[in-house]
């Protein structure tokens, strides 16, 4: 069976960057898929399902990262992760991070 690969390059738009809460939301979303998910920034390639690994990117606003998924649901995974990042990581109350920036 050939492994499906899907990738997209996205820019972190939320003012606070990929701090812990967005990192957690990203890892949680990524973990819903069976595909292996990796995030690439410059020469770093990390496990997109691990909060700690995402934090090691230190990705500030404006940083470009590539999201790569390998597996049967790669396409859906990348689509959903791109949606999450480009929406600026809204929290449960629907507020964007800019409105709740003190976290």
């Amino acid at each position: 069976m050939t492994e499906e690969k899907q990738s997209a390059t996205i820019t972190i738009i939320n003012p606070q960057g990929l701090h812990m809460r967005p990192a957690y939301l990203f890892a949680e979303t990524a973990s819903r898929f069976s595909s292996r998910i990796e995030v690439v920034k410059d020469d770093m390639r990390i496990d997109g399902k691990s909060v700690l690994s995402i934090l090691t990117l230190g990705a500030t606003q404006g940083t470009q990262v590539a999201v790569e998924a390998f597996g049967p649901d790669a396409q859906a995974a990348v689509a959903q992760l791109v949606q999450l990042v480009t929406s600026g990581f809204p929290d449960e109350s629907g507020k964007t991070e800019a409105e709740a920036s003190h976290f």
Partner: peptide, 20 residues
């Protein structure tokens, strides 16, 4: 401090790197 998100990220980055 809320107005220095880059500093916060760099502190978290260091903590998480070491914790791995």
């Amino acid at each position: 401090p809320p107005d220095r998100p880059g500093d916060h990220l760099r502190a978290l980055e260091n903590i998480s790197k070491q914790l791995q």
